[in-house]
Simulated scan of single mutants.
Amino acid sequence: MGENGGMTYPLVEEAAKKAAVAWVSVGGPAYAVWCLPLEGRLHVVVGPGEQELPGLAEAERATVTLRGDHGGAVVTYPATVERVEPGGERWDAVAVTMAGKRLNAPGTAEALAERWGRECVLVALTPAGEPEPRGDASGSAEPRPTPAANATRKPFRLHRVRRR
């Protein structure tokens, strides 16, 4: 049993310790989000001016995928989603620490944490089930449709090419 009362999974714990980015899915495609590992949980901020992950703020469960040292997916696990409410002891500990690690943040960590309390949602993702080890590309998704796709045309040739 872990210190937070939940089951411990060594692979999840090891991957989470080093996690700066996680892929999180709430019943749809997974989004890459920056996160803060703390006390056996991953903490994520979503909202205006921060990262978007549709449905996470209202969700009760999510699926988290973490990568290893070489960039490939290492483990995928189910997690419970819990909102960290502004103003409490836990908020003060997590939000200010997380704001201090936020890259390119305007102002102080305290000011950023205060803005998050007004405009954003801070959630804790706690492992809640058997992890699936990932050593291959078996869970890779199809690329999402995008207007940025290239049109395929014949290559431009300045001079005529003669065939023999």
Rank of each mutant, 00 (worst) to 15 (best):
G2T: 15
G2E: 15
E3C: 10
N4Y: 07
G5F: 09
T8W: 08
E13S: 15
E14I: 13
A16F: 10
K17R: 14
K17Y: 09
A19D: 05
V21E: 08
A22Q: 08
V24M: 09
S25I: 13
S25L: 11
V26L: 12
G27A: 11
A32Y: 12
A32R: 14
A32I: 13
V33N: 09
C35V: 14
C35Y: 05
P37W: 12
L38C: 13
E39C: 11
G40C: 08
R41A: 13
R41D: 11
L42Y: 06
V44P: 02
V45K: 04
V46Q: 03
G47A: 05
P48L: 09
E50R: 02
Q51P: 04
E52G: 07
E52C: 07
L53V: 10
P54W: 04
G55C: 10
G55Q: 07
A57G: 04
A57H: 02
E58D: 07
E58K: 07
R61Y: 02
A62C: 06
V64Y: 00
T65K: 03
L66I: 01
L66S: 01
G68H: 04
G68K: 00
D69G: 13
D69F: 05
H70A: 02
G71W: 01
G71R: 03
V74C: 00
V75C: 00
Y77C: 03
Y77T: 03
Y77E: 01
P78G: 12
T80D: 04
V81Q: 01
R83A: 13
R83H: 07
R83P: 10
E85F: 05
E85N: 06
P86C: 07
G87T: 03
G87Y: 09
E89W: 03
D92A: 14
D92P: 08
V94R: 07
A95W: 04
A95Y: 02
A95E: 03
V96P: 04
T97G: 04
M98F: 14
A99I: 04
G100E: 06
G100H: 06
R102T: 15
R102C: 12
L103D: 07
A105P: 08
P106S: 15
T108Q: 08
T108C: 09
A109H: 02
A109G: 02
A109Q: 05
L112C: 10
E114P: 05
R115Y: 11
W116G: 01
G117L: 04
G117C: 05
G117S: 11
C120R: 13
A124D: 13
L125E: 05
L125V: 06
T126N: 04
T126W: 00
P127A: 10
A128H: 09
A128V: 02
G129F: 07
E130W: 03
P131Q: 01
P131H: 05
P133M: 00
G135A: 02
S138T: 03
E142Y: 07
E142T: 10
E142P: 04
P143I: 03
P147D: 10
A149V: 09
N150Q: 12
R153K: 05
R153N: 01
K154D: 07
K154L: 10
R160D: 13
V161I: 15
V161T: 14
R162H: 14
R164M: 11
